[in-house]
């Protein structure tokens, strides 16, 4: 199937990506070619495996192992906050959830 510019724009929005008009056109043509290629999977889908049998690679490992909860190291928190673009005391600073005209952080 082919993906149109509108569709690419809609999916990009879902993925929280803004792409330029030029990118929309390029992506639409490249992604259509890729999706066309992927559509060959229809011919291979014999439905022999159940949906439960889908986690192919990870099934080769042991089943997931729960680990005991442990308190976070305080030093790790400092390093975590050092990586934050903006923080105040022990909190991350981000813009308001709701847009306010001209308001920032």
């Amino acid at each position: 199937m082919s993906l149109g510019v509108e569709e690419v724009r809609r999916i990009a929005e879902l993925a929280r990506l803004r792409i330029s008009a030029r990118e929309e056109t390029t992506f639409a043509s490249q992604l259509s070619e890729i999706v066309d290629y992927i559509d060959q999977l229809r011919e291979f889908d014999g439905g022999t495996a159940s949906q439960d049998d889908t986690h192919a690679a990870s099934d080769t490992a042991d089943s997931d192992l729960p680990r005991p909860a442990s308190a976070a190291d305080g030093a790790l928190l400092d390093q975590f906050l050092d990586n934050a673009p903006a923080s105040l005391d022990r909190f991350l600073l981000v813009p308001q959830v709701k847009a306010t005209p001209g308001g920032e952080e």
Binding site: I38, L41, D45, G46, T48, A49, Q51, T54, H55, A56
Partner: peptide, 15 residues
């Protein structure tokens, strides 16, 4: 049509 099908095929490939 995409994720579900691919996941099924991967399971069968492993088999």
């Amino acid at each position: 049509a995409y994720y579900g099908r691919a996941a099924r095929i991967a399971g069968a490939l492993r088999q």
